[in-house]
Design a protein around this nucleic acid. Structure first.
Length: 942
RNA sequence: GCCUUGGUGGCGGAAUUGGUAGACGCGCUGGAUUCAAAAUCCAGUGUUUUCGGACGUGUGGGUUCGAUUCCCACCCAAGGUACCA
C-alpha cells in the first residue's frame, strides 16, 4: 500500500469538520489551555507560505496540549476592516463587504487545506456588526470613565461628576488634559450643560481633542507617517501639511506606568518588552517654570514650563528652545523677528514629524527676540524656536544647556550662543559633556561641588520651595488618535448635540455602517460617511434616520469618522471565549473558565501597536471588573519572517544576450527577476518555459555553461512583483499538507527569519513515506504484536524525551530531525512492533495530523487520535552498560574509547593512560594533568 | 546615533548546565535497480595533507584542563527607533 497523501488529507479534513473534532466547550471537566494566533487581514493576494508559519507552530502546540489532556481553545477569525478593501472600492465601486467576503472564503479554503485544528464555530470578523457591536460598546465604557490617580484605576464618570458637584476639581487627582481649568463646586453648578460636558471630555478615557495630523488637501484625507515621503503624499505626490483636527483620542497615557510595570509579569520576548518600554519612554526629571521678560512687542510676562531630565545643569542654561508650534511663540516674538519666525514655522509645518526627527545633521532654528528670566541667576536668556523640539513631547519647550547636551551644543555653536561650562574639569571645546557618573557641578552657586545625583535632589528641593518647579516623571507615550477619515471601519456610536458628543445607549447597538454612493471624502472635505444620506440619530425612536430629519431637537447628526484598524483587534481574544453572546461581550462563566490567553503567537511588527493597545484595553476592562487578569496573554512568541529566494537572469545590455550566472564575471549586467517556478533544485532555468512565460525573449540568445542556464539567487521579502511567492496550495497539491507543516517547522527556529526554498521539501516528504513504510509494505499492514527489541525501545524513548522537551521549548525544527532519526533507526532495526509504532504515531500527530489519523485508524482504532494521551518517557530504556569516551589531548579530541558506564575515575584514567594510542599521542611526554569527567570526557594535558 | 537579534560546510540549520563542532535535511559525487526516466536503496561529502596528522564556528584578545557556548574590544548583516530634553 502506498502513501496517498491527497486521499488521506481530504478524508480527515472532512472527518474533522463533520465530527467537530476540535470544538472547545466552555466548561469541560478538564484543565483549559488557550492557544491564540494573531488573526489575519484577508488580503486579495491570498496566503503565501510565510503566513501559516506561526499558525502551524500554534497548531502543533494546541494539538500537543490536547494529547496532554487539556481542553484547548484554538480559535481563528479575521481582522476584516482595512484600507485595501476600501481602496479597491474607491477604484471599482465594489462594496468593501463583498470584496472582504470573497477574500475570506479564499483564506478559509487555504487554511482548511493545511489541516489546522481551529474551532471554526468561534470565528469572529471585526467587520461583522454582531462583532463590532462590542467594539462600540467598549468605546462607550471608555467614554464613561475617568482615571483616578489616587486609586490608580479607571472609575465611572458619575463618581467624578459627584465630586465636582461637592467640591469642584481642586482635589481631584485625575488624568486630564493639560489645559483643564480649576473650578469650584459653585462654578460647576453655574456652568451650562455644554460647558460641563466640555469639562468632562477633558477627563474621559476617550475624548475629543485637537491633534496634529498629516493633512493632504488633494486627497482630502489624513495620511499616516509612512504614507508621507519627503513632505508629499506617497500616492500622487500631493503636498502634505501638519494641521490640527478635532479627533477622538484614547487616554492611554493614564496607563503608562501600569503598562510599563506589567511587562515584568508576562513571559514575552525581551526585545518586544524593550521596545514597549522604549515606546512608553519613562524619564524622571523636573518641570521648571521660566518667566518671559516684557519685550518691546509685548509688555506681558508669560510662564514657560519646561521638562528636563537634567535640572542639575540649570546654571548652564544659556538659552531656551520652543517647538515652532508652541502656543506662546507668536505672542512673545518681537515685531522685528516676526518675518523670520513665521517663515520658519511655515517651513517646519511642511516637514513631517518623521522627517524632522530623521534629519540629524542640519541645525535649524530662529530667534524670537524675546528673553526669559533664569530662575536663579535672574539673567535674561534668549528664547529660540527649533524643530528639534517636538510639540508633542513634554511641554514642547526645553531649557538649553549646551555644555551638557549635544543637540543644545550643536545649536549654540551654529547660532553663536555662549556655552558656559558648569562642569568641574570637563573639556567642552569640541563636544558637550554628557557623562552623568563623572559629573561634578561647578559655577552653579548652591550646587557647586555636588555630584549629578545630589545636585538633582538639591535643585528640585529649592525649585519646589520657590514654587518654580517640581520633580516630575515624564512619558514619551502620547494619547492614541482614534479617528480615521475612512469608510471601511467601525462607526462610532456617537451623535452631536450642540457640538458636544453623546453616546447612543448600549441597547441600540450595533450602529451599522451606512451605505454610501462613493467611498471618497466629500467635496467639502468631510470623511466618506459624509456621503451617507441615512446618517442621523433619532432620539425619540432610537433609530438611524435620514439626514433631512435633523432638527437638532430630537434628531441629531451622527459622527462621520470611523474607528482605526486596531479597534477591532484590541479585545478579540476575550470575545472568542463566548463569540455568539448577544447580551454581553462575554459571559462571566466563559471568562472565569478561560481566564486569559496561555500562548499567543504572532509577528513582532505589532510590538508597539496592537500589543500595546490590547494591553491598555485589557487593563481598563480589568479596572471595570470585567476580566480577571490585567494582562491578556501570559506567554507570547514572535515567529520570524519567511523570506523568498528570488531568481535572476543576467542580460548583457550591449549584446542583448542573456548570460548564465557563472559566466557573468565582473561585467555589469542587468539582473532580471524570473519566476521561481521555472527553476529546478540545481538553480537551472527551464528556458523553454521561460520563453513561453515571457514571449519577448523568444529570440534572445541564452549563453549557457555546461549546457545549462544557471540563475542567480538572492533572498528578498516574498512579494508578487519579485516573482518569488510560493503559495501553500501548490505545496499541498504536490506534497500534501503534512509535508508542508513539517517543512515549515524544519526550516529553522520559529523566532528567526529564514529563506524558503521549496527544493528542500523532498526531505520531509521522503520522511513521511519512510514512516508509512514502517506500517505498510506492498501487500498491506505489516504491524505485528511481537515484542519490541531493546534497541527499538531505546529509539522510541529517546525520541519521546527529545520531542516532549523540544515542544515545551518551541524548538519544532529539532523535533522534526528527531522524528527522522527515529524512523531511520526503526527502519534499520526492521521494527514493525505495535508497541513501538503506536506511540510513535501519537507523537507525530501534532506535526503531521492527517497521516497520523490514517495510521491510527489502520491500526484498528475507531476514534480520532487527537486526544490520545501523549507517550510517557521511561528512563529505564536508555540505561547503557558502556560509554564511548572521547579522549582529548589539550582539549582536542583525538580518539574514542569504549569503557563500562560504571567505571570509576581512577580506573578510567589508568585504562586511558595505558592505551597505545595515548602513548602515541604523548610521544614520550609525561602527562601534566588528567581530567576525567565520568560519563562525559577525558582530557589529558601534556 | 541608540536598542534588539544574528554571523557555524555549497545551502537551511544542530550542538538544551562550558565537555566528541557540523546532528537532520537539501544539494553534489559514485554505485545498485531500470530499455530509459522517476521513485527507491547503498556509499561518500568542512578545509588541507607528506595520509602520521594539521587547521577549522565573523575578527582580535582574555578566562579555563577544555570555549560555537563565558568576558572585553572590534567588524558585518537584518529588524526596530525618538535629535525625547
Amino acid at each position: 500500500m502506498k502513501y496517498n497523501f491527497a486521499e488521506i488529507e481530504a478524508k480527515w479534513q472532512k472527518y474533522w469538520a463533520e465530527n467537530q473534532t476540535f470544538r472547545a466547550e466552555n466548561n469541560a471537566g478538564k484543565p483549559k489551555y488557550y492557544v491564540l494566533d494573531m488573526f489575519p487581514y484577508p488580503s486579495g493576494a491570498g496566503l503565501h507560505v510565510g503566513h501559516p508559519l506561526g499558525y502551524i507552530a500554534s497548531d502543533i502546540y494546541a494539538r500537543y496540549k490536547r494529547h496532554q489532556g487539556y481542553n484547548v481553545l484554538h480559535p481563528m477569525g479575521y481582522d476584516s476592516f482595512g484600507l485595501p478593501a476600501e481602496q479597491y472600492a474607491i477604484q471599482t465601486g465594489q462594496h468593501p463587504a463583498i470584496t472582504t467576503e470573497a477574500n475570506i472564503s479564499r483564506y478559509r479554503e487555504q487554511l482548511d487545506r493545511i489541516g489546522f485544528s481551529f474551532d471554526w464555530g468561534r470565528e469572529v470578523r471585526t467587520s461583522d456588526p454582531k462583532y463590532y457591536k462590542w467594539t462600540q460598546w467598549i468605546f462607550i465604557q471608555l467614554f464613561n470613565s475617568w482615571y483616578n490617580r489616587d486609586t490608580d484605576k479607571a472609575e465611572d464618570i458619575e463618581s467624578l461628576v459627584s465630586i465636582f458637584e461637592q467640591q469642584g476639581n481642586a482635589e481631584v487627582n485625575g488624568v486630564c488634559d493639560g489645559d483643564t481649568p480649576r473650578f469650584s463646586a459653585f462654578d460647576w453648578k453655574e456652568m451650562s450643560e455644554s460647558e460641563q460636558q466640555a469639562i468632562l471630555l477633558k477627563y474621559r478615557l476617550t475624548y475629543l481633542a485637537e491633534s496634529e495630523v498629516n493633512w493632504c488637501a488633494a486627497l482630502g484625507t489624513v495620511l499616516a507617517n509612512d504614507e508621507v515621503v519627503n513632505g508629499v503624499s506617497e500616492r500622487g505626490g500631493h503636498p502634505v501639511v501638519r494641521k490640527k483636527m478635532t479627533q477622538w483620542s484614547m487616554r492611554i497615557t493614564a496607563y503608562a506606568q501600569r503598562l510599563l510595570d506589567g511587562l515584568d509579569t508576562i513571559d514575552w520576548p525581551q526585545p518586544l518588552k524593550d521596545s514597549q518600554a522604549n515606546w512608553i519612554g519613562r524619564s524622571e526629571g523636573a518641570s521648571v517654570v521660566f518667566n518671559t521678560l516684557p519685550s518691546p512687542g509685548n509688555g506681558n510676562s508669560y510662564p514657560i514650563e519646561v521638562f528636563t531630565t537634567r535640572p542639575d545643569t540649570i546654571f548652564g542654561a544659556s538659552f531656551m528652545t520652543l517647538a515652532p508650534e508652541h502656543e506662546l511663540v507668536l505672542k512673545i516674538t518681537t515685531p522685528e523677528q516676526k518675518p523670520k519666525v513665521k517663515a520658519y514655522i511655515e517651513a517646519s509645518a511642511m516637514r513631517s514629524e518623521r522627517d524632522r526627527m530623521a534629519d540629524v545633521k542640519s541645525v535649524t532654528g530662529a530667534f524670537t527676540g524675546a528673553y526669559a528670566e533664569h530662575p536663579f541667576t535672574k539673567a535674561p536668556i534668549p528664547i529660540w524656536i527649533g524643530d528639534y523640539v517636538l510639540a508633542g513631547y513634554g511641554t514642547g519647550a526645553v531649557m538649553s544647556v549646551p555644555c551638557g547636551d549635544q543637540r543644545d551644543f550643536d545649536f549654540a555653536k551654529y547660532f553663536d550662543i555662549p556655552i558656559p561650562n558648569i562642569f568641574h574639569g570637563a573639556d567642552i571645546t569640541e563636544q558637550a559633556f554628557v557623562d552623568k557618573a563623572q559629573t561634578q557641578i561647578a559655577n552653579s552657586d548652591f550646587l557647586n561641588g555636588l555630584s549629578h545625583k545630589r545636585a538633582l535632589k538639591k535643585v528640585i528641593e529649592v525649585l519646589e520651595k520657590m514654587g518654580q518647579g517640581k520633580g516630575k516623571v515624564n512619558y514619551r507615550l502620547r494619547d492614541a488618535v482614534f479617528s480615521r477619515q475612512r469608510y471601511w471601519g467601525e462607526p462610532f456610536p456617537v451623535y452631536y448635540v450642540g457640538g458636544m458628543p453623546r453616546m447612543i445607549p448600549g441597547e441600540h447597538l450595533p450602529i451599522k455602517l451606512p451605505e454610501v454612493e462613493k467611498y471618497l471624502p466629500t467635496e467639502t472635505g468631510e470623511p466618506p460617511l459624509g456621503n451617507a444620506t441615512e446618517w442621523a440619530w433619532d432620539t425619540l425612536n432610537s433609530a438611524v434616520v435620514s439626514n433631512h430629519k435633523i432638527d437638532h431637537k430630537t434628531v441629531f447628526p451622527l459622527e462621520l469618522n470611523t474607528m482605526p484598524g486596531w479597534a477591532g483587534s484590541s479585545q478579540y481574544f476575550n470575545r472568542y471565549m463566548d463569540p455568539h453572546n448577544e447580551a454581553e461581550i462575554f459571559s462571566k462563566e466563559a471568562i472565569d473558565y478561560w481566564q486569559e490567553v496561555d500562548l499567543y503567537i504572532g509577528g513582532s511588527e505589532h510590538a508597539t501597536g496592537h500589543l500595546l493597545y490590547s494591553r491598555f484595553w485589557q487593563k481598563f476592562m480589568f479596572d471595570k471588573g470585567l476580566v480577571p487578569h490585567d494582562e491578556f496573554a501570559k506567554k507570547l512568541i514572535n515567529q520570524g519572517m519567511v523570506t523568498g529566494m528570488s531568481a535572476f537572469i543576467y542580460r548583457d545590455e550591449e549584446t542583448g544576450r542573456v548570460i548564465s550566472k557563472g559566466l557573468v564575471g565582473d561585467k555589469k549586467m542587468t539582473p532580471i527577476h524570473v519566476d521561481i517556478s521555472l527553476i529546478n533544485s540545481a538553480d537551472e532555468l527551464d528556458i523553454n518555459a521561460f520563453k513561453k512565460w515571457q514571449p519577448d525573449y523568444g529570440d534572445t540568445e541564452f549563453v549557457l555553461e555546461n549546457g545549462k542556464y544557471i540563475v542567480g539567487r538572492e533572498i528578498e521579502k516574498m512579494s508578487k512583483s519579485k516573482y518569488n511567492v510560493v503559495s501553500p496550495d501548490s505545496i499541498c497539491e504536490q506534497y500534501g499538507a503534512d509535508s508542508l507543516r513539517l517543512y515549515e517547522m524544519f526550516l529553522g527556529p520559529l523566532e528567526q527569519s529564514k529563506p524558503w526554498n521549496t527544493a528542500g521539501i523532498t526531505g520531509v516528504h521522503g520522511f513521511l513515506k519512510k514512516l508509512w513504510r514502517l506500517y505498510f509494505d506492498e501487500k498491506g499492514m505489516q504491524v505485528t504484536r511481537s515484542e519490541p527489541s531493546k534497541e527499538s525501545l531505546k529509539t522510541l524513548h529517546k525520541t519521546i524525551k527529545k520531542v516532549a522537551d523540544d515542544i515545551e521549548h518551541f524548538s519544532f525544527n529539532t523535533t522534526v530531525s528527531s522524528f527522522m532519526i527515529c524512523v531511520n533507526e526503526l527502519t534499520f532495526q526492521n521494527c514493525h512492533s505495535r508497541a513501538i509504532l503506536e506511540p510513535l504515531v501519537v507523537m507525530v500527530s501534532p506535526y503531521a495530523p492527517h497521516i497520523a489519523e490514517e495510521l491510527w485508524a489502520q491500526l484498528g482504532h475507531t476514534d480520532s487520535i487527537s486526544t490520545v494521551p501523549f507517550p510517557v518517557f521511561d528512563a529505564k530504556y536508555l540505561v547503557e552498560s558502556s560509554k564511548e569516551y572521547p579522549i582529548s589531548f589539550n582539549g582536542k579530541m583525538r580518539f574514542t574509547l569504549e569503557l563500562p558506564s560504571d567505571m570509576g575515575k581512577e580506573d578510567i584514567e589508568a585504562m586511558v593512560l595505558a592505551h597505545e594510542k595515548t602513548q602515541k599521542q604523548l610521544e614520550g611526554r609525561t602527562p601534566k594533568k588528567v581530567i576525567v569527567v565520568t560519563g562525559k570526557i577525558v582530557n589529558i594535558v601534556s
